[in-house]
Design a protein around this nucleic acid. Structure first.
Lengths: 211, 211, 211, 211
DNA sequence: CATGAATGAGCCTTCATTCAT
DNA sequence: TATGAATGAAGGCTCATTCAT
C-alpha cells in the first residue's frame, strides 16, 4: 500500500511503537527490581498503567518480552563497547591504547549511568538455558571482536609476536565482565574509572616492574 | 560386637549420608541440565529413584537444596583456587608466577573435569537476590584474597610500586571468571591451559613487546 | 444513556457481586455438608461450575472464605436475635416476656429455615483457635446483651432483686445454644416453638409449681 | 485358654495397657493444645517419647485415637453428671434440688479441674460429621436422662403438671452446655459455682419475683 | 515388638495465557 | 483495540500410613 511507504508512520502506528517500547522499559524495570521469575505480566502492565491483557497484543508471551529486554541491554553495552572505536582501526600502540581507554570510559559511563544493566546481564543466564546461551553468545561476540583487534595488532606489529590472541581475548573479556560485576555493587564513576585504568595497565604493562 | 567406639557411623547412618549426598548430586544434575526454576522436586527425586516425599526428609525445601548444591560447587572451586597456594606466601616474582600457574592448572583441571560447575555459578545469580549476593560474595572473597597477594607483592617489592591493588584484583578475578565462562563452552583441557597461560602472560608481561 | 448516577452498579459489577455471593453460598454448602477440612477449594468451585482459579479472584484463601461464611451465619443469627427487640427497652415483666417470645420465634424461624446454620456454628470452633475465639466471642456478645436486659429488669424492678445477672445470662445463652443444637437434628418448626415456650416457662416460672 | 482368665494380666499385657493409655493421654493433650487437624501422629508419639510407628500398633489410625480420646472425655463428664445422683431417684422437690446441686458441683469441679475437657467437646464437632454426630448423641443422652428425671418429678408430683419435659430437658442441657462453654474461658471454681447456683435458681424459682 | 525411613495421595496456591465484551 | 475475568496446568509441600530392619 502506498501510504505505508517508510517515511509516513501513522499517528496510531507511532503510538503503538511507543507503547511497545513502554512495555519493554517497564519490563526491564520489573526484571531488574525483582528478577525474571518473580515478575508477573501483571506487574509489568500495572507499572505502565495498562491492562495486562494488552501486553499480549504487543508480545507473544513472557519469554518474548525478556528476549527483547535483554537484547536491548546487550545492544546498549555493545554500543558502548564499539561506538567509539568504529572510525578507524588503530595502527600504533598509542592508538590502540587510546582506543582501549575510550572503550573503558564508555563502559564506565554506561554502567555508572544505570547499574541495572550489569545486574540484568548477571542474572539473565538464570532464566533458562537459551537465555544463558544468548549471554554467552554476547560474551563471545565481544571476545571475537577483541580477538580481531589483537590479531590486527600482532600483524601490524605493535603487539607482541606469538601472542595467543584467542586466549588473550578471553582474558580481556573477563576483565570487562569484572567491570560489570563490580558495577553491580560499586557503580560509582570513580571506581569504574580506576578499574578501567587498572585493566589498561595490566594489558600494556603487566603487573610487574617495567622491564 | 566390638565396635571401635569413635568413628563408627551406623550402617543406617552411612546410608543416610549417602542418600543425602545422592540428593545433592541429583539436584546438581537437574539444575545444571534444566535450570533451577525448570527443575521440580519430583525431577530430583525421580532421577534418583526415590519418592519425592523422601526429599523433604533430607532438605527443608527447594531453596535449601540449591543452597547446598551451590555451596558445594563454590567449595570445590575455592579448593582449587586455594589448596595449592596455601604452603607459603610467595616472596619473589618467580614464586608468585609459579603460584599463579598452579592456580591456573588447578582451575583448568577442575573445570575440565566437570563443566557443569561453571555453568552452575553462571546461572545461580538468576535464582534470587540472596543467591546472587552469595555468588557476588564468593567473587569478592576470591578478589580480596588476590588483593592481599598483590599487596604483599608490592610491599615485598616484586610487584610494581603504585599498582592499584584493589582495582587490579578485580581485573584478575575477571580473568578467572573468563576461564569459567569459556569452560562452559570449551571445557577441553588444552583450551583451559592456553587460557591460563595467556592470563599469566598478561599479568607478568602485558600484551605488548617486552620493553 | 441516562443513568441515575449514584446507585448504578455496572452489569459487570453486579455479576461480580453475584459470583462472590455464589462462592460464599457454595462454600457454605460444602462446609456444612463435609466440614471445613474435608472441603477443598476445588469442591467449592466445582459445585458452582467455575474454575478453581476463579475462586482466588474473590477470596484470598480457604481461611478467608470460611471467615466470610461464618460471619454471614453469625450475622443472620444476630439479626434474628436482635432485630425484633430493638424498638424499645421493656419496662414491665409482660413487655420483657413478650420480647423473649419474639426472640424465640425469630430464632425458631431462622433455624427451621436453614438447619445448616446451627450446624455451622457447632462445627466452626473446630476449624482453628481463631475461629473458636470468634464463636466464643459471638456467644459472649449475645450474653452481654442478655445481661444488660436482666440488669435493666432488676433495676426497673420487674426482675428479682439479687438476681445474679451475669451468671443467669450465661444460663440463658445456654438455652439459646440448646435451641440451636436441637435444630441441627430437629429443625421442625413445631419442635422449635415448643422449645422456645419451655425456655420462657423456665425463665418466668421455673419448673416447679407456682408458689 | 485357662491362664487368660480375667484376673491374671501378664506383666507385658499390663505394660501394653499402660502404653495404650499413655498414647490416649498424650493425644488428648496434643488435641487440646493444638486441635485435631494441627496435631500429627508424630506429635503424639514424640510427646510420649515413642517412635511414631509404634502408635499404629495400638491404634488403627488418627481417626481411631481421637475417637478414644473423645470417648474418654465424654465418659468423664458423664461420670460427673451421673455418679452422684445414682443412689436413689429423688422423690421430693428438696431431694431433686439437692441432686441438681450435687450435679452442678461435680460439673464445676471437673471443669475447673481440667478446662481442656470442655474445649475438647467444643471443638470435636469440627473434626468430621461423625464426630459431630457423636457429640450431639452425647448431648442427647444427657438430655434423655434429664427428661426421665423431669418426667419422674411430674409423675411424683413435685414438678409442675403439664411441664413439657422433653423441651425443658433441652433447655436444661443447654444450661449445662453454657457451663462448659464458660469454663473454656473462665475455669475458676468460683465462677463455676455461681453459674451452677444461677441455673438452680432459674430452674426452681425462675428469674422473676417468687409469686 | 518398636522403630523411623520411605512413600505418594492430596491440597493449596500461583500466574501465564485466553477470549468475550 | 483494550481490557480483565476466567481458567487450569503445574508444582511445592505435608503428613498419615506402611514396612523392612
Amino acid at each position: 500500500m502506498m501510504w505505508t511507504m517508510s517515511a509516513a508512520p501513522t499517528l496510531a502506528e507511532r503510538r503503538k511503537q511507543e507503547l511497545r517500547q513502554g512495555i519493554i522499559d517497564s519490563a526491564f524495570e520489573c526484571f531488574a527490581a525483582q528478577g525474571y521469575h518473580a515478575t508477573g505480566i501483571a506487574d509489568i502492565a500495572t507499572r505502565l498503567g495498562i491492562g495486562h491483557g494488552t501486553f499480549y497484543r504487543y508480545f507473544a508471551n513472557k519469554r518474548d518480552i525478556v528476549e527483547h529486554v535483554v537484547d536491548e541491554v546487550i545492544a546498549k553495552i555493545i554500543a558502548a563497547l564499539s561506538a567509539d572505536n568504529a572510525p578507524e582501526v588503530p595502527d600504533t600502540i598509542a592508538d590502540y591504547r587510546a582506543q582501549v581507554e575510550r572503550i573503558g570510559d564508555a563502559l564506565a559511563r554506561i554502567l555508572t549511568d544505570d547499574p541495572r544493566l550489569p545486574r540484568m546481564v548477571l542474572e539473565a543466564p538464570g532464566i533458562d538455558p537459551q537465555m544463558s546461551a544468548k549471554i554467552l553468545g554476547f560474551y563471545d561476540l565481544a571476545r571475537r571482536l577483541t580477538e580481531r583487534y589483537l590479531a590486527h595488532g600482532v600483524e601490524t606489529g605493535y603487539l607482541r609476536e606469538g601472542l595467543d590472541v584467542e586466549a588473550t581475548s578471553h582474558a580481556i573479556i573477563g576483565m570487562i565482565v569484572a567491570t560489570m560485576l563490580s558495577a553491580v555493587q560499586q557503580p560509582e564513576a570513580q571506581h569504574q574509572r580506576r578499574l578501567a585504568a587498572a585493566i589498561q595497565s595490566l594489558m600494556f604493562e603487566g603487573i610487574t616492574h617495567e622491564h
